[in-house]
Design a protein around this nucleic acid. Structure first.
Ligand SMILES: NC(=O)c1ccc[n+]([C@@H]2O[C@H](COP(=O)([O-])OP(=O)(O)OC[C@H]3O[C@@H](n4cnc5c(N)ncnc54)[C@H](O)[C@@H]3O)[C@@H](O)[C@H]2O)c1
Ligand SMILES: NC(=O)c1ccc[n+]([C@@H]2O[C@H](COP(=O)([O-])OP(=O)(O)OC[C@H]3O[C@@H](n4cnc5c(N)ncnc54)[C@H](O)[C@@H]3O)[C@@H](O)[C@H]2O)c1
Lengths: 243, 243
DNA sequence: CCATCTTTGTGCACGCGTTCACAAAGACAT
DNA sequence: ATGTCTTTGTGAACGCGTGCACAAAGATGG
C-alpha cells in the first residue's frame, strides 16, 4: 500500500477495474517466480494462494483480460506472464527520472528491482549544486536547472519525487510542464496536478499511523481498562473542550 | 494503498471504516500545518481542499469520531488535532524496530518524519556481522541474533522489514513469534501471518507498474495505431498461443 | 427576541468491489 | 465415443465507500 494513494475517480480504463489493475503486478510477480522454476501451468487456486488473494477474485480479474485459461487444467504460465506484461505496458521501456537525491532518492537509485521490469533510471536530478556530477548508483547527478531538457531529451513520462515536502509541489509543476504525466510522490504532501496526470503516493508516516490505530485497538481489547494514566469520570470524553 | 496493501477483511474497528482510518493521517497532517500557523478554526470545505478530498467525505469521516464541529463556524483546529491523534493512538509512544539496514533501511532510519509523530526507532537490526555496532543515524546496528531480546526488552509491537525478499518471511516469522503484531513490509513478497497480526506493504515496483498501465493507456488513446512496432493481422491477439 | 446566514451532520441513492456458487468447458481414461 | 473429473468463467447477491442534497444547529446582527 502502499498501500495510500491519490486515485483519480478513474474512468474505468478500457473496462479493467482499477482494483484489478492494482493486483496485476502481484500476479505477475508470482507468475515470474513460477516461470523461473519452469512450472508450465498453474491453477487459479495455486496462483491465488501465491499472490495472497481469493481465487474467485483472481479468476474474475483474469476474465477482464480475456479467456486465457483452460478448464480442467489451469493457466499457461508463460502465456499469462506475457499477457499481463503487455496489459501493464511492460513490454516497452519506461525511462524514469528521480528528483531529490538524498537518503531516499539514493536508495531508490540503487534499487535493483527498478530496472528488472521495464523501468530504466534515465536521470537523477537534485537542486544541490554540490551534488552535480557526483555519481550515485553509477549515474551522475544532474542539476535541476537541466530538468526540462532532461525530460525532453529522454522522452520521460514518469517522474519520482523524493525531495523535501516543501519542494514537492514546485518540482511537480515543473515536471508536468515539461511533459511528465505520471508521478510517484514520496514527499508527505498532497500534490495538485492538472487532469490527465496521474499521481500515486507512498507515505511511510501514514502507513505507520494506520498500523498504530489497529495496534491501539488490539491493546484496548485485551485490557479495556488501564488506558493512558487515568481517565475522566465519564470514561469517554477528554477533559479539555474547545472554546 | 499504499497503498497497495494487505488489508484484513477488517472487522470494522470500533465502527470506524477502514477507508476513514486511512484518511485520518491526511487530515492530521493538514491540521498540524494550520495549527503551526495558529489558525483557530477551519471549515470542512477548507480542510478538505488542503487534504485533497471531498468535503462531504471529510464531514462523514469526522462524524465517526463524534460531533466535534460547530455549525456555522467549523472545527476547532487544536481540538481536532487532539481527537485524531488520540483516535490513531499517537498520544502514546510507539517503539519501532527496522530489520535490514541496507540502502532502504538506512534511509528509513535517517528519516526525520519517523520520530515526529509518536514513533521512535528503538533498534536497527541486520544479519550482516560486519554491520553490528556500526552506528546508522546515531543508532548502533544490532545483530539479528538479538532480535527476540530486543523486541522483548523494548516492548516493541511494530516492526519494519527492509531485508531482501528472500529473508522477509523468515524475519517476519521471528518478529511475530517475538511478539510483534504490526508489520510494515518493504520487501516485494507476500507475507503470511497469523490472525491478529496486521501487515501493510509498500511496494515501489507495483506503484510504477500501475502508473505504466495508465501511461500506456494515455498513449494509446492519442495514437490508437502505431503501438509497438507492428501488429498481427487480427490486431488484438498476439501471434504466440499457449500449447 | 427574532431573522438571517453559514456550516455541520446525515439520510439516501448509486456504483464499485468482493465473494459465493454453479453451469459449462475441456482434459483424460476407458 | 462416452463418461468422469477437474477447473474455469461468470451471474447474482451483498456490503462498503462515495457524494449529493438538505434539514437542523448554532452564530451573528439588529
Ligand atoms: N528517508 C525516508 O525513509 C523517507 C521515508 C518516507 C518519506 N520520505 C520523504 O522523502 C523525501 C526525501 O527524504 P530524504 O530522507 O531523502 O531527504 P533528504 O533531505 O536526505 O533529501 C532531499 C534531497 O532533495 C534535494 N532537493 C531539495 N529541494 C530540491 C528541489 N527543489 N529540486 C530538486 N532536489 C531538491 C536536496 O538537495 C536533497 O538532496 C522527504 O519529503 C521525506 O519526507 C523519506
Ligand atoms: N532500495 C529501495 O529503494 C527499495 C525500494 C523498494 C523496495 N525495496 C526492497 O527493500 C528491501 C531492501 O532493499 P535495499 O535496497 O535496502 O537492499 P540492501 O541489499 O541494500 O539491504 C538489505 C539489508 O538486509 C540485510 N539482511 C539480509 N538478510 C537479513 C536477515 N535475515 N535479517 C536481517 N537483515 C538481513 C542485509 O545485510 C542488508 O544490509 C529489498 O527487499 C528491496 O526489494 C527497496
Amino acid at each position: 500500500m502502499a498501500t495510500g494513494r491519490t486515485h483519480r475517480p478513474a474512468t474505468r480504463s478500457r473496462g479493467i477495474p482499477e482494483a484489478t489493475v492494482a493486483r496485476l503486478p502481484l500476479y505477475l510477480r508470482a507468475l515470474t517466480g513460477l516461470s523461473e522454476r519452469s512450472v508450465p501451468t498453474v491453477s487459479s487456486e495455486e496462483l491465488a494462494a501465491a499472490a495472497g488473494v481469493n481465487s474467485a477474485k483472481l479468476r474474475k480479474d483474469f476474465s477482464y483480460l480475456g479467456s486465457y485459461g483452460t478448464r480442467g487444467v489451469g493457466y499457461d504460465v508463460e502465456y499469462l506472464v506475457y499477457q499481463i506484461s503487455r496489459e501493464l505496458g511492460l513490454t516497452q521501456d519506461w525511462p524514469v527520472v528521480i528528483v531529490g537525491i538524498g537518503n531516499l532518492g539514493a536508495a531508490l537509485a540503487n534499487y535493483g528491482g527498478f530496472a528488472s521490469r521495464g523501468f530504466r533510471v534515465a536521470a537523477l536530478i537534485d537542486a544541490d549544486p554540490a551534488m552535480a556530477g557526483k555519481p550515485v548508483a553509477g549515474i551522475p547527478v544532474q542539476h535541476s536547472d537541466e530538468l526540462e531538457k532532461i525530460i525532453a531529451d529522454n522522452g520521460v513520462s514518469i517522474g519520482v519525487i523524493a525531495t523535501p515536502a516543501g519542494a514537492a509541489q514546485p518540482v511537480c509543476d515543473r515536471l508536468v510542464a515539461a511533459g511528465v504525466t505520471s508521478i510517484l510522490n514520496f514527499a508527505p504532501t498532497v500534490l495538485t496536478v492538472p487532469d490527465g496526470v496521474d499521481v500515486r503516493k507512498v507515505d511511510l508516516s501514514i502507513e505507520l499511523q494506520i498500523l498504530a490505530f489497529h495496534e491501539q485497538r488490539k491493546a484496548g481489547e485485551h485490557a479495556a481498562a488501564a488506558a493512558d494514566e487515568r481517565k475522566g469520570p465519564d470514561g469517554e470524553l477528554p477533559a479539555v473542550m474547545p472554546a
